[in-house]
Amino acid sequence: MTSLTATLAAAVERRRAVRSGVGATRPGLAWAVPATLFFTLFAIVPLVLVAVLSFTGWNGIGSPQWTGLANWTALWHDPVMLKSLWLSALLTTLGVVVQTPISILLGVWAAGHQRNRAVLLAIYFVPLLLSATAVSVLWRALLDPNFGIPSEAGWLFGDGNLLGTQSGSIGVLAFVGAWQWTPLHTLIYQGGARAVPQVLYQAAAIDGAGTVRQFFHITLPQLRNTIITSMVLMVVGGLTTFDTVLILTQGGPGTDTTISAYYMYQQGFLSFDFGGASAIALVLVVIATLVSLVMVRLTGYDKMNSTAEGL
């Protein structure tokens, strides 16, 4: 949707440019062919195939058998599916709630010119350089109840049964996610905070506003679009979380961290029920689309009003 508006705006620009005689070599439709082909082949076609598969029973051997709505009625009555949607929502919300304040504070701090800032920042960004798989394997080892951190800090972790309880394993997933992704959002906020015009702070300082007041009345409002960008990334990332679950909890204990994306993998590639897995995949596609539409509408992201108006 946003890209559409952007394309339209660009087209209008180009038409103006042509009319005014600047940039006479306007790119033709042919320029869009590679991207369109790629997108059709790897996004649209699989999506349609998945939609078709969701009405069949297929275990990967032989040809799919048409089963009508069987997968969908089964999914409707499947308590694990409903639970997985709640878990996905919970993990996504936890991600946003935990990461946003930390990365805003870090990002705003990083936008300054303090001593040692560059060195500390370089250290903060290390998690970003590691693959999600490596991060998960690392934390899995660090959180071992008998030989990891919990065994040394019994006062905090009790018997260390972090991954054996639902609250514990959700906490671990949220924590590892935050550990890994906060640096990225810090980077985004750093850029946003750097772009805030200094005159605003100078004016506020003259009016006697302290650091805290400046933060709440200048920095935060000025970061509005940055916050939206960062949150959209967090929500999309949260809904598609998979690797950390695969390695840290494998959906367990029981089905207590079986989020929708992992449930889809389980049904498809562990149980070889590709029909049922396709139905879950479609549900995920629909929900993710709805969530992004709502977010774009609610936040005014599609308009992208400048925060620098009147300056």
Binding site: A141, D144, N146, F147, D159, P253
Partner: peptide, 12 residues
């Protein structure tokens, strides 16, 4: 009490 946090595959 914490056997569900322990794995064989990672050497625990």
């Amino acid at each position: 009490s914490n056997f569900d946090s322990v794995k064989f595959t990672d050497g625990g």
